[in-house]
């Protein structure tokens, strides 16, 4: 995966964001190339969710630039719905639509946003549900599924839109331990297929297995942005060392 194409899929240039007086993000810059898998970690409240939500414009920022496949997210002229349709996002708490069946969860975006026919959408949904091993649950409602199953459906829902990249915001941190692996397995497979991924996660096993780079955030800053080998070998900042020793010890 060292031969990346020239222009990055996702680029953040000196992004800063404030909530009133409080600065959540300070001067964050990084790039994600096509096919690259980035793991973002850092203590709670360090701004990881905020950063990842800036990528698809779910959070506005006051300074800097975010560019996704050549399109500026912060530009008021950018049609955000159109951009978001091709940037998949998976949330900590799944966020499946509780009033729809699993199949409808997977079809609604395809039909209403991409303009696919119902048949086409259902075929795609069935294919992706099968892929995440949940074909049998198609007619159920999200509330009838376990957390791990719901999160796999959420990944399938995002994949139905044929995303150019995927954003994950702590996809396994709300799950019971025995369900974490079924979700990580799907993510590993995706990574191996060459999906561009930006994952907020503390699953260091996952990072070691498939990440190309690891970003460490603290107090709204990107403190470390290193290749996986460098990050796990010799993290430069003391804070990252401390953080690593804490999460690797349990």
């Amino acid at each position: 995966m060292n031969q990346m194409t020239n222009s990055p899929m996702i680029e953040l240039r000196n992004v800063s964001k404030w909530y009133g007086q409080f600065q959540v993000l300070t001067d964050c810059s990084t790039q994600v190339s096509k096919g690259e898998v980035i793991v973002v970690c850092g203590p709670s409240g360090s701004g990881k969710s905020t950063l990842i939500k800036c990528v698809n414009g779910l959070e506005a920022f006051q300074q800097g630039e975010v560019i996704v496949k050549g399109i500026s997210v912060g530009d008021p002229k950018t049609a955000l719905p159109k951009l978001r349709a091709h940037v998949g996002m998976v949330f900590q708490h799944f966020e499946l639509f509780p009033h729809m069946t699993i199949t409808d969860n997977l079809c609604i975006g395809q039909i209403k946003v991409l303009g696919r026919s119902k048949d086409e959408a259902q075929q795609k949904a069935a294919k992706l549900l099968d892929r995440v091993g949940l074909k049998a649950q198609a007619h159920k409602h999200p509330g009838q599924l376990s957390g791990g199953q719901q999160q796999r459906v959420a990944i399938a829902r995002a994949l139905c839109m044929d995303p150019i990249c995927m954003l994950f915001d702590e996809p396994t941190s709300a799950l019971d331990p025995e369900m974490i692996n079924e979700v990580l397995d799907v993510m590993v497979e995706l990574a191996k297929e060459g999906m561009t991924m930006m994952c907020v996660s503390h699953e260091m096993g996952f990072a070691r297995k498939v990440a190309h780079r690891v970003i460490f955030m603290d107090q709204g800053r990107i403190v470390e942005d290193a290749t996986k080998e460098d990050f796990f070998g010799t993290p430069r900042s003391e804070r990252a060392q401390l953080f690593l020793s804490k999460i690797l010890s349990h």
Binding site: K53, N56, P81, K82, H86, E95, L96, G109, V113
Partner: peptide, 13 residues
Amino acid sequence: ARGQVAAGYALGF
């Protein structure tokens, strides 16, 4: 829930 709103927008609605 705010997460539901975010999920809808994230799909491109």
